[in-house]
């Protein structure tokens, strides 16, 4: 975690969760890939099983939640950062190819949905976002598309050899996500750190990333 950051804010957790969502949409992987990477990076003491991972990701204030959100500590957030960078590195060529096709569509003024890899990514992202996020049903199609494409670009930059420092830097300086400002008050938990440490029972943790 960046120096000077005592604990991860809701915005940081939400952003990390969105990056994982982007990777899932791109590569079709879920919690198994994250757990495998955690083991590869010797982070299994922090992220050890699907339920544990589900609890961490559910700390995002953007997530639908039926109970209190888990308190995420600094080491867990740091582990997510390392895992995201590792996964982005693994999928670097796919990120590059998808972004390149997006650029082709843009330069030819065609819909990105006419480019199969981009269309697949967007459709997966929409499905994940609508089913998991608190504003998933109310947020406009264009707004989710915008979010998905931004994440695709950012993941590409994080997939580089210099991506880890770039991700650190963006977390340290990131302003509050605009999505968090628009959430209904009863659904919003802007500070998951201080939230109750209740452990919600995941309904289908195996389907979560």
């Amino acid at each position: 975690m960046p120096a000077g950051l005592a604990s991860p804010s809701g915005t940081i957790i939400a952003y990390l969760d969105l990056l994982l969502l982007g990777l899932e949409a791109l590569a079709g992987e879920s919690s198994e890939a994250v757990l495998r990477t955690a083991k590869t990076l010797h982070l299994e003491s922090l992220i050890y099983d699907r339920v544990g991972l589900w609890r961490i990701r559910n700390a995002s204030p953007l997530r639908r939640s039926t109970g209190g959100r888990k308190k995420v500590d600094i080491d867990e957030a740091r582990a997510l950062v390392l895992i995201i960078h590792h996964l982005a590195r693994e999928h670097q060529s796919q990120l590059r190819q998808t972004l390149s096709r997006l650029e082709v569509a843009f330069s030819e003024e065609r819909s990105p949905y006419q480019e199969p890899p981009v269309a697949h990514y967007l459709e997966e992202f929409h499905a994940h976002y609508r089913s998991r996020m608190v504003d998933g049903e109310s947020r406009s199609q264009d707004s989710i598309t915008e979010q998905a494409l931004r994440l695709l670009i950012e993941l590409h930059f994080y997939s580089s050899r210099h991506g880890l420092s770039r991700l650190w830097g963006s977390l340290l300086q990131r302003p509050e996500l605009p999505e968090l400002q628009n959430l209904p008050p009863e659904e919003t938990n802007p500070d998951p750190i201080s939230a109750t440490n209740d452990t919600p029972t995941p309904v289908t943790p195996h389907s979560e990333g």
């Binding site: 003024e109 065609r110 819909s111 915008e146």
Partner: peptide, 17 residues
């Protein structure tokens, strides 16, 4: 991007830009 309405379309058969 959003102003370029063709990008908001999901249907590949949508009109050109």
């Amino acid at each position: 991007w959003n102003n370029r309405s063709q990008f908001a379309a999901r249907d590949p058969q949508d009109p050109p830009a």
